[in-house]
Amino acid sequence: MDFVDILKDKAFVGREFLTWLWFRSDTSGGIVEIPGKRTIELHFLDKMVLDLSGSDSPQTVAITGGQSELREGMAALKEGKKIEEARISIKDAHEDFTVVIKASWLSFSGFRPPATLPMDSTESPEPDALFLEKMYLLERFLDIIDELFSFFLDLRLSDTWAAHELPAIKEWIRREAA
């Protein structure tokens, strides 16, 4: 299978991951425990795009606003759509990140790590030090994303998915979209 086919036919993997993240965050007050790794705080913020995976023609719904507006996303989930793009915040014991994740590429926009020293401060850090600090934070963030994604994959490929996780997701959608 070549890259273009994978990008199109397997886009659902990233969309299911983001949608599952919303389920986990929403049903646990934003606290997500990654088994054996760490506990993080994860919230979906003010922007979400949902898409119908596998559809020949794109059927997207874009939602912006606060938590009450995001609930409209539940109606889209009920129609079978999944999250293609969302702005989220992730907080672990040390850092606080906000980012927009695009599911089909697992790409990141508007990534904001915790504040580092500005380049024009009176005690300007060396540009090398500033760059290395940015990359350190970026890779810490990507470690968390990989841990969350591995957690999702372990569940998605196990028997636990059909037995527990999927019924819980369906129940969440049914309840919240009512």
């Binding site: 949608t19 989930l77 994959l153 490929l157 369906k170």
Partner: peptide, 21 residues
């Protein structure tokens, strides 16, 4: 990220989930 050949094979065969209730 997946370690075992078995999991990689499961991934290759994975189909989209329908979770509309």
């Amino acid at each position: 990220l997946l370690r075992s050949a078995q999991d990689k094979e499961k991934l290759a065969q994975l189909k989209p989930e329908s979770w509309a209730p």
